[in-house]
């Protein structure tokens, strides 16, 4: 009898622990990998909940979600995909929000190539210019707008090399296959300073805000962990982390 009593006590403890601490799967656009890991680390230090992150391109994650992937939350690299999911009735209505606004930089792996102005770009003094595919990546759309603003679309087009996403664009430049290109500030900034190479931090008024939206998915509708993580995104600590990676948090 004693053994059964102890076993049932253990079982009771386990189930009650489970109801407090929950484990959820969260889908995250790969361009947000580093800041998301930092935010989840900070979150888990304070919470009993455990977050399992799955990184991928927004398009792939979108396809997986529409086909029943067990994600509680979706952090997209754009605004379109969470919106379409909402229209399809796959998100909890009213849960969609902008979790980060990205900033764009022109970057070169060569520490002397850029001088924090548009001059190198305007003089056309380079062989290859890398940018993310505007059809697929919001940072590509922003790069397109910058080139348009300076009337450089036509003159530079023959020099374009396009990455499928912003990480690949970064690779093209970091391996010096393209002398310069448009990347996310979050890729080249750490603790508020540029890590390597040289850059031009592009004025914000030259391109439309690169807003990244997240949404609570139907799968996470009754999940306390998902709600707690969403709440944490509005905390001062999360905002500090976002800013240290060069994201814009003020409207």
């Amino acid at each position: 009898m004693g053994v059964i009593r102890i076993l049932s006590l253990i079982l009771l403890c386990l189930t009650s622990a489970l109801s407090h601490a929950e484990q959820i799967n969260v889908a995250v656009a790969s361009n947000f990998t580093a800041p998301m890991k930092a935010i989840v680390k900070a979150f888990e230090e304070k919470s009993e909940h455990r977050i399992k992150l799955s990184f991928g391109s927004s398009g792939k994650l979108f396809a997986q979600i529409t086909h029943g992937a067990p994600f509680a939350l979706f952090f997209s690299a754009d605004q379109t995909k969470p919106k379409i999911l909402e229209e399809k009735g796959l998100t909890v209505p009213g849960s969609r929000f902008t979790y980060a606004t990205g900033a764009l930089a022109l970057w070169s792996a060569d520490p002397t190539f850029l001088d924090d102005t548009a001059s190198r770009l305007q003089h056309g003094d380079f062989k290859k210019l890398a940018l993310a595919n505007p059809k697929l990546a919001p940072y590509g759309v922003a790069a397109h707008e910058v080139l348009e603003y300076y009337s450089l679309l036509k003159t530079t087009r023959a020099k374009w090399v396009q990455g499928e996403n912003i990480s690949q664009t970064y690779q093209f430049i970091s391996t010096a296959n393209a002398e310069l290109g448009f990347v996310a500030v979050s890729q080249i900034m750490q603790q508020g300073a540029i890590k390597t190479g040289s850059s031009w931090l592009i004025p914000r008024e030259v391109y439309s805000p690169i807003k990244q939206d997240a949404a609570l998915l139907l799968h996470g509708k009754h999940s306390p962990a998902a709600k707690a993580l969403l709440q944490f995104f509005h905390s001062a600590q999360a905002i500090d982390i976002l800013e240290s990676y060069g994201y814009i948090t003020t409207p």
Binding site: S57, S58, G59, K60, F62, A63, K81, I84, N133, K135, L136, E164
Partner: peptide, 11 residues
């Protein structure tokens, strides 16, 4: 193959 990938990513 890249074109197909682009189509899928662009939904």
């Amino acid at each position: 193959s890249v074109q197909i990938y682009d189509h899928v990513e662009a939904l």
